[in-house]
Nucleic acid binder design. Structure first.
Lengths: 189, 189
DNA sequence: CCTTGTGAAAAACTTCACAGCC
DNA sequence: GGCTGTGAAGTTTTTCACAAGG
């Protein structure tokens, strides 16, 4: 969250940012931000604010985002395709290096520069340096596919299917249910 | 969240569900769920659990999801297209009735049964019964487009662009930043 | 002046424990 | 036996207030 906002400031050529400015942009309170940053180890300059480059470096370090992280994409449907070509992953240093699907129609085709492989050839992702996977399959197939990913040595799964999946606790799952996010809007309206 | 899990149970033909079962499925604690449901007004049956149909009805009521909610989609790029054809909105009673884009290449074409219109013809969405919008435009265009939506009388915006947008406080914004969600995974890995 | 950093107070949330009911 | 509903306890998070520094 911070990373996105601060990177934006860097692109605008800003060198320093105050907790107040960030608070306004992110709709938070300023002491909250200072407290968060103090957990990172303090490096703010009193009267000025925080150095943008230092902040980005430190956050990337804490999030273990140093260098490039390889990720696999499972599911080459419409959503999968949109994700494969989504430019936003670059900011966090992610690269989708392999794409898998079950459909024989799709296998062998390319999305961007990456060839779609059969899910049967998932193999050991860990050995190929892939620790993260993005799951863009129908809800019915999500659990089964997640289990394959775990077998393949994946450590984190971004689940785009509208369901919860159960995995060993050494594996971290983050679920995004787009319809659900839309569903809570009318409540506030 | 509950709606998704409970709807799934209904499709499976289950009539009643206990807080314990839901807790297991959603990875929560059972008193938590009972407390949430008690805010809805209590209607559990001691010794049995909660009636699935009653629960769904009540949750839809609280979320103001009764009937069909019309939504507009802004941005007919890859992500927009995937969202337009995303089947998951149905569960929550959403229907994307209008699609807009800036690109002359796309205007006039159809996604599914819905024609892509020029963003210039956004007009008064409120009068056409549209109170929600899904924003699937590049980050640079998000703020400007959001302002147009607010002018058009929209009350809730689901923002898929990787940035925060500022709107009058009568308008509710829900932001989904896919890359960010992926970005927090390595931290736990 | 402007900022950060932090202890203390307040609020929100989570968990526990158990009475009451089927 | 099983399960709900809820007050009380515990924990975490958020907010405030202010000393201290450029």
């Amino acid at each position: 969250m911070y990373l996105r906002a601060i990177s934006f400031l860097r692109r605008q050529g800003q060198d320093y940012v105050s907790s107040r400015d960030l608070a306004d942009q992110l709709h938070l309170k300023s002491p909250q931000i200072r407290k968060d940053f103090s957990y990172f180890g303090a490096f703010g300059v009193k009267g000025i604010g925080y150095r943008v480059d230092t902040l980005i470096g430190r956050i990337r370090e804490i999030l273990k985002l140093s260098g490039t992280q390889k990720a696999a994409l499972i599911g080459a449907g419409r959503l999968g395709k949109a994700l494969a070509l989504y430019p936003g992953f670059g900011l966090y240093g992610f690269e989708i290096v392999e794409i898998f699907d079950v459909s024989p129609k799709k296998i062998g085709k390319k999305i961007g520069n990456t060839k779609i492989q059969s899910i049967k050839h998932l193999g050991n992702l860990e050995k190929r340096g892939i620790r993260l996977a993005i799951l863009a399959v129908p809800a019915e197939a999500a659990q089964e596919t997640a289990e394959r990913l775990v077998e393949g040595g994946v450590r984190g799964i971004l689940n785009m299917a509208p369901c919860y999946i159960t995995v060993p606790k050494r594996v971290r799952v983050q679920t995004i249910d787009i319809a659900m996010e839309l569903g809570i809007l009318p409540y506030y309206v």
